[in-house]
Design a protein around this nucleic acid. Structure first.
Length: 305
DNA sequence: ACCCAGGCATTGG
DNA sequence: CCAATGCATGGG
C-alpha cells in the first residue's frame, strides 16, 4: 500500500479544528468524514481509485499549513496531487474570508460571531452529486434523523476500503444508487418520493459530457435555473448546492426554517420574519451572504437559540 | 397520541 | 396564482 505526503497552505485565517468540525458536524464520525484527536480523515474517490486522506494541522490560524498523508493501492504521485487538491477543496482552504469579515464589522450581531469563530472556512462537498443527494435526503428532516439516513446510505452503497484495521467509506457513485431498487432505498428509511428523486439526480450526474460537474462553469442564476428542472430540487436545495458544492459566496437558502429562526432570534427579538422580509434583510450581507449564512448556522449550533 | 424538524410536488380552489 | 396536503423518521 503506497503512502505519499502533501502540503496544503490555506488562506489565513484558517482554523483547522473549527473547519473540519463543521464538516463532521462536530462529531467523531459523520458518514465519509471523521475527526478525532485533531486528525481529519476522509476516503476520496480519485478517478475511481480509493485514497484515504489523513490531515493534520502543522501551522496556526494566522499561518495555516496542513500535512496531508495519502494512502491507497497503486497510488501514483499525480493521484496524490489530485487527492490533495480535493482535500483543499473540501476544507474550503482557498476561501478569502477577510472581505466578509470587513463587511461584518458594520453588523453588531455578525461582528461578534465572526470574532468568536475566526478562521472558520466553509467545507465543500466533493461533488455536486453528493451535495444534491444529501440536500434532498435532509429536506424537512431534523438533522439527527438526516444523519442516520445519510450514514445508512453511505455504508450501504459507498465504496469502502480498510486501512490499518479500520474501514472507511466514500460517498456512493451515481451508478450504485441508480442500480438500486426503489424498495431497497426505502428500507434505508428514505421515502419513496425521495428515492425517486435521488435516482433522477444520479441519472443527471451520469449524463452529458461532464454531468452535474458542468454546473461549475455557469453563473449562479443559470445554475439555479438548471437545478430547478430536476425533480425534488426547489429553491432551498438549489441555493444549498451553490453553497455546499459550488463555493459561490452570495447564495442564500430562503425558506430554511432554522435560518429564519436564527435571524428572528438574533436580530428581531424573536418575532418571526416571512421569506420576503428575510430576503430584504439579507441584502445587508451581500455579496457574502453564503458566509453570513454559515456563520449564523454555526452560532446557532453552538447554542445561540 | 400528538407535533415538529435546516422542503418539495401535487392537487384543488 | 395561493393554500392545503402527503411524505419519512425520531425526539420532545
Amino acid at each position: 500500500m503506497a503512502s505519499l505526503t502533501a502540503t496544503v497552505k490555506p488562506v489565513p485565517p484558517f482554523d483547522f479544528g473549527l473547519t473540519a468540525g463543521y464538516q463532521t458536524y462536530f462529531r467523531s464520525s459523520y458518514g465519509s468524514d471523521s475527526l478525532a484527536q485533531d486528525v481529519y480523515r476522509r476516503l476520496l474517490d480519485v478517478r475511481g481509485k480509493l485514497v484515504l486522506a489523513t490531515v493534520r494541522s502543522v501551522g496556526s490560524v494566522a499561518a495555516p499549513e496542513l500535512a496531508v498523508e495519502l494512502q491507497g493501492g497503486g497510488l501514483a504521485s499525480q493521484d496524490a496531487a489530485l487527492a490533495a487538491d480535493q482535500v483543499a477543496w473540501i476544507l474550503g482552504a482557498h476561501q478569502q474570508l477577510t472581505p466578509f469579515y470587513t463587511l461584518a464589522q458594520g453588523d453588531p450581531v455578525l461582528s461578534a460571531i465572526v470574532e468568536r469563530f475566526n478562521g472558520l472556512h466553509l467545507p465543500h462537498a466533493a461533488s455536486v452529486f453528493e451535495a444534491l443527494v444529501l440536500a434532498i435526503l435532509g429536506q424537512q428532516l431534523a438533522t439527527n434523523v438526516a444523519r442516520i439516513i445519510r450514514t445508512l446510505l453511505i455504508e450501504t452503497y459507498g465504496p469502502c476500503q480498510t486501512f490499518q484495521g479500520e474501514t472507511y467509506y466514500t460517498f456512493p457513485r451515481p451508478e450504485s444508487l441508480l442500480s438500486a431498487d426503489l424498495e431497497e432505498l426505502q428500507r434505508l428509511k428514505l421515502s419513496r418520493r425521495k428515492a425517486e428523486y435521488i435516482q433522477g439526480i444520479a441519472t443527471a450526474a451520469l449524463g452529458e459530457p461532464n454531468g452535474l460537474q458542468a454546473l461549475h462553469q455557469l453563473p449562479d442564476a443559470e445554475v439555479v435555473k438548471q437545478l430547478l428542472q430536476l425533480r425534488g430540487v426547489g429553491p432551498w436545495t438549489a441555493q444549498w448546492v451553490l453553497i455546499r458544492a459550488l463555493g459561490r459566496p452570495d447564495a442564500f437558502p430562503l425558506g430554511d426554517l432554522a435560518l429564519r429562526r436564527t435571524v428572528s432570534h438574533l436580530y428581531f427579538n424573536g418575532s418571526t420574519l416571512n421569506d420576503g422580509e428575510l430576503e430584504q434583510f439579507s441584502r445587508r450581507w451581500s455579496p457574502w451572504r453564503t458566509y453570513a449564512t454559515i456563520y449564523l448556522f454555526t452560532a446557532m449550533r453552538a447554542g445561540a437559540r
